[in-house]
Design a protein around this nucleic acid. Structure first.
Lengths: 226, 226
DNA sequence: ACATTTATATGATAAATATCATTTTTTTTG
DNA sequence: CAAAAAAAATGATATTTATCATATAAATGT
């Protein structure tokens, strides 16, 4: 079992506030899991009873809308924690977490985290700030969904994927979503998403390399996204 | 200056965790404000440096979208706290708060609240739970905006206004939004909103009493909202 | 390697929604 | 109370987006 003290991703999350003793306790109680591409870390409605620390890989957080379509609420990657909201609210998960690539995650049981809350103010504060950041992002996102056109949302999402997750050597976006997933991220029909990608391609804004996407004119895309 | 100890609305917010001594301190540092209908409590981008406790009245939280339209993110009423997210994130307000009717609010400066955070775990936990609740609502809302039609969103919003804020003696919705405001809550053009209200009226789902709205068939509206 | 499934793409069309113009109603103001 | 301004309502039309059908390309299993 690997030691939390030596784990680098810890430094990128609220867990950075933990001291040596707390980290040793953490190492003892955590369990390590490999999640394959397409598998769930947890599902909407499930009682999670702890949080997951993402050591490696990317996953999507989705919610089933009443019309039966999945909506991608957020992408989460290495260094971030999952399940904090459910744990604090003491409610089942509001979203499903599904791996977009093979992942390595650690599970930390609820009672351990709650102990840190009581004794380590900096840790509580970090968690609170993270959730506040999530809330701001969610509000902003909501306004975008409500007020922007599909075209604007697509442009914005491409920029987001580029800026947040970066590009490969061949300049294609590192996070490779299917057209279907991209559509469920911007909230539109798959065909509409594909059609707009074709349009963007013809306009020289992007280039479609098979299923992969290269952003060719980031400035124009940014203007387009408003 | 009225005493926080005797204030009833305190019981409906995170402040209920404060003990007698803390409430006395609170009374000493808080300032009381009357806000008239249409006035701001604070504006997007402003440094708030504390939180507001709503003693009476309702306000809308809006965000200006890049296309220049205001979007109503949330309605907030008596007993709730405002500005918690900005204070914790140590950032300017992400949203504007504008009174929908005359309001009575109390302002509590940041350093006072931060003191309670340090010393009163139950209070911190309450605040955290509130923000977690807000985050869940925001995520749900986002999915609705992205996946539902304007008609579904209108039906849902009417039900929400009914269930959350209740009705007057004449059965009209208590929160009286203009057509423009209703449209900016569901994310559509004012004319589209008006047209759909007319349709709902003709279908017998609602009744339009001047500018006021009566829900006539709540079950059908609920089905419509999904 | 070939058959089968799945993903991507495109056309045709329908439905939803926005925009612009105009009218009617309500509210405000002098 | 009348005039002006603002809000609500409706029609005509344009634009956006969804849906259904079908074609092509890529991935998968045996």
């Amino acid at each position: 079992m690997s030691k939390c003290e030596q784990c680098i991703v810890r430094e990128f999350s609220s867990l950075k506030a933990l001291n040596k003793d707390e980290l040793i306790k953490l190492s003892d109680c955590k369990t390590s899991k490999l999640i394959k591409k397409g598998e769930h870390i947890f599902e909407e409605g499930e009682n999670v009873n702890g949080i997951f620390c993402i050591k490696d890989g990317i996953c999507k957080l989705t919610k089933l809308s009443p019309n039966g379509k999945d909506h991608i609420v957020k992408l989460v990657t290495k260094g971030e924690l999952l399940g904090q909201r459910s744990m604090i609210s003491d409610e089942p998960a509001n979203l499903s977490a599904i791996a977009l690539e093979d992942m390595h995650v650690c599970f930390i049981p609820k009672n351990e985290i709650m102990g840190f809350f009581d004794k380590n103010n900096q840790f509580s504060m970090n968690v609170m700030k993270t959730i506040c950041g999530d809330l701001k992002t969610a509000d902003d996102h909501m306004v975008n969904m409500a007020q922007k056109s599909v075209k604007e949302r697509l442009a914005e999402t491409l920029i987001y994927l580029h800026d947040t997750f970066g590009i490969n050597k061949d300049e294609t976006l590192k996070v490779q979503l299917s057209r279907d997933e991209l559509a469920s991220m911007i909230g539109t029909a798959t065909e509409s998403c594909i059609r707009l990608l074709s349009d963007f391609n013809k306009l020289g804004l992007i280039e479609l390399v098979g299923k992969k996407i290269v952003l060719k004119d980031i400035n124009k895309l940014k203007k387009m996204a408003d």
